[in-house]
Design a binder for these strands. Structure first.
Lengths: 146, 146
DNA sequence: CATGTTGGTGTGTATATGCACTTTATTACC
DNA sequence: GGTAATAAAGTGCATATACACACCAACATG
């Protein structure tokens, strides 16, 4: 049985613990997948662009749940390395973001390895449990930030 | 009932979603507590120092689950603002970290407001559910990074 | 047509994160 | 006591995060 936590004590702060877990899981994914040369913030961007080509900055950042201005900067290394192409750059102009051919193939090589890592993580608690946890966290987060 | 997720699909990446939730909860805590002038990484440090005075860099970073070198830098604003005092600074020297009087009073004023915010978050899913989730995530994370 | 409003973008500043590496003090061993 | 090994702390670099702000294009309104 799990020990009951005193939720009014700061060591059980939801914000602190979410940050902590976020670092811990990122550490595991990075250690398993670093040979692809992709960081944990970059692969979701590539995957999102594969699923939704020609997205805006605003649309994409919204979908990824990150600040728009953070996305602007996170794209720079990906553009520099030729994985993403941004057409119509410039202030006031809509930007159309696309995966390059290199971006597609890089992502294509990454996914199978990522699936192995994800599987290891899912096995820790089981798929059903992870499903519930992700759903609950989604529900909690969206009920707060409205 | 919650829709079943395809866990082999990158939009359900545990790493990505943990980062996303982490940002979302941090956003809520910051918006509610920013008038105290403390950022979400800083308050756990103050709370840890209140509970464990005279901690090392290494001990403290270990307890907080963050990289030691990250802690070194996160302490700078707190030292600059006079909330934390580091005695015996310097390479090779053990550092003894302490809350200053100002640090104690700042933390003392912060905690009641933090508890209100934490309560709002805990209410989203209920205390029992949050307990399970935090325990499960702890278990999953520690089974991976060993 | 001038102007004002709005939506989409990029920048300045400050903090956060962690790996590889460096620097220094202490401890171990002879 | 001198030197090697170890432990503790800090730095360089690159990336991540987000608020406040500036910028620009297209469109609305008079």
């Amino acid at each position: 049985m799990a020990k009951k936590r005193e939720m009014a004590s700061m060591e059980n702060c939801v914000c602190f613990n979410m940050r902590r877990f976020s670092r811990a899981f990122a550490h595991f994914f990075v250690s398993e997948l670093q040979h692809h040369g992709l960081l944990p913030t970059q692969t979701p961007i590539l995957a999102a662009l594969a699923a939704k080509p020609d997205a805006n900055m605003a649309e994409l950042s919204d979908w990824l749940g990150m600040d728009r201005t953070t996305l602007v900067r996170n794209l720079h290394p990906l553009e520099r390395d030729g994985l993403v192409k941004a057409s119509g750059k410039g202030r006031g102009n809509r930007v159309s973001l696309k995966l390059t051919t290199k971006g597609q193939s890089t992502l294509g090589e990454f996914v199978p390895d990522w699936q192995k890592t994800q599987r290891k993580v899912v096995e820790t608690l089981g798929e059903a449990r992870w499903n519930e946890i992700l759903d609950d966290l989604e529900r909690a987060a969206s009920s707060l930030n409205k």
